[in-house]
């Protein structure tokens, strides 16, 4: 392994890293927003919207991100909507992640026993007070581990972006290998940058789990 090669590639990797983090996190924020809306729609049996929400979850959870990206990137222009690779990446990740997040949030909401609602109602709490003070905090602490797992999964899924020529980490590594054949250096840098991107998320996730789960579960 040649240190000179490593250092000469470093700026390109940093650039790719920043882009990957940016698109990744925008996608995750979209995913969380979609997830919350879809989970509420299903949990509260909203008429008309519920079957649509369920169909969305099944469609996006059961198709690969690559296929979804192709539809957005190459399909939409056919009906006159052109999107940049960055927007396509963020939206695609958001739509895929939304279906996963929706199921995580919903499992938390569904896991709070009905008796919790009843005892809160018996105390005279309104539906909104009951939801805000009793159901939501419990649902969130139940959902936290799977939400953190989804975030890590989605950040890794960004590696698919290279298929739509987004200059992310994977694309940069493949590109450099193709041009100069310094396979070892390129792959080592690739692994290092993914670890730099994900380990802090993993640690933060553990801290968040401790904070939200201690009260209810003591761990």
């Amino acid at each position: 392994m040649d240190p000179n090669v490593l250092s000469s590639y470093l700026p390109l990797y940093v650039q790719a890293f920043l882009l990957t983090v940016k698109i990744g996190w925008i996608g995750i924020i979209i995913a969380i927003l979609i997830g919350v809306i879809v989970a509420f729609t299903i949990h509260f049996n909203v008429p008309v919207l519920k079957p649509i929400a369920k169909a969305y979850v099944e469609l996006f959870r059961n198709t690969p991100l690559l296929v979804q990206l192709f539809f957005i990137y190459f399909g939409l222009p056919k009906i006159g909507i052109t999107v940049s690779a960055e927007v396509c990446g963020a939206v695609g990740l958001g739509l895929l992640g939304g279906s996963y997040m929706a199921e995580s949030f919903r499992s938390g909401l569904d896991a709070v026993p009905v008796s919790q609602s009843e005892s809160a109602l018996a105390l005279g709490l309104s539906q909104s007070q009951l939801f805000g003070s009793v159901i939501l905090p419990q649902a969130f602490s139940i959902s936290t581990p799977s939400i953190v797992a989804n975030v890590i999964f989605l950040l890794k899924e960004t590696s698919v972006f290279s298929a739509i020529s987004l200059m992310d980490l994977m694309f940069t590594a493949k590109d450099l290998i193709g041009l100069y054949y310094n396979t070892t250096e390129c792959l080592v840098l690739l692994v290092v940058f993914y670890i730099v991107m994900l380990v802090p998320v993993s640690i933060l996730g553990t801290v968040l789990e401790k904070k939200t789960r201690y009260k209810m579960f003591g761990v």
Binding site: P113, S115, Q116, E118, S119, A120, L121, A122, L123, G124, L125, S126, S133, V134, P137, Q138, S141, K215, M216
Partner: peptide
């Protein structure tokens, strides 16, 4: 209904304390 529930206290078999509080 909600107003009247304030006037009727109820305690259940399974306690149903709020576990996060």
């Amino acid at each position: 209904l909600q107003k009247n529930r304030e006037k009727i206290g109820m305690v259940f078999q399974s306690y149903d304390l709020f576990p996060h509080k």
